[in-house]
């Protein structure tokens, strides 16, 4: 018994550990969200919250319902696999209310350079130029139709930037 008495302080220290562990467990119960771990190592409720956010992108099928002529040009050109909103930005708001929400027309002198500026990291067969040397700041659409950029592959530069929908509604700015 005296051995136990002389080791009493060790139990106090151990008690401190147990107490700290219990406090940790209690705090953990409060701070860890209830849905954590429901599907994986994250808060399960986050999926519902993200899903409930307003949709920003309309998807190219939606665009094609009104802009069928552009879609036709694009399908035959080198940009067939580039989605509309990759260049024009998220346009669900425009699709929902085409009369009020009119998208800003991208500046091709800036936009095209984002992909087509020469870099050793890009595949050799990918069209790439030094924009300053190539066009000297002149918008790319002067010579290239952005929807079918290879010169001569469509009806001509800038032709593809118009559309039936544009004609009908006064065009994009």
């Amino acid at each position: 018994m005296s051995g136990m008495k002389d080791a009493g302080h060790l139990f106090r220290f151990a008690g401190l550990f147990v107490l700290a562990f219990l406090v940790f467990l209690v705090v953990r119960t409060y701070v860890v969200p209830k849905s954590f771990g429901e599907y994986g190592h994250y808060r399960g409720a986050a999926i519902g919250e993200i899903a409930s956010r307003p949709i920003k992108f309309a998807g190219h099928q939606t665009c094609e319902t009104c802009h069928a002529d552009i879609a036709d040009t694009k399908t035959k050109g080198a940009h067939a696999h580039v989605n509309c909103e990759a260049c024009h930005g998220a346009l669900a708001a425009h699709a929902d209310d085409p009369m009020t929400v009119t998208p800003v027309k991208p500046d091709t002198a800036v936009l095209c350079a984002q992909c087509h500026t020469a870099s050793a990291a890009k595949p050799k067969d990918f069209p790439q130029v030094d924009p300053a040397d190539h066009s000297g700041g002149v918008p790319c659409e002067t010579c290239h139709n952005p929807h079918s950029p290879i010169i001569g592959s469509d009806s001509g530069a800038s032709a593809g930037s118009g559309s039936s929908a544009k004609t009908a509604k006064g065009g994009a700015k």
Binding site: G3, K5, D6, A7, G8, H9, L10, R12, F13, L16
Partner: peptide
Amino acid sequence: MTLGSSNVSARSLHIDDKV
């Protein structure tokens, strides 16, 4: 810091040493 124990008997210090 004593955690309420003031036992510094030779036996308790010996236990401390071993632990």
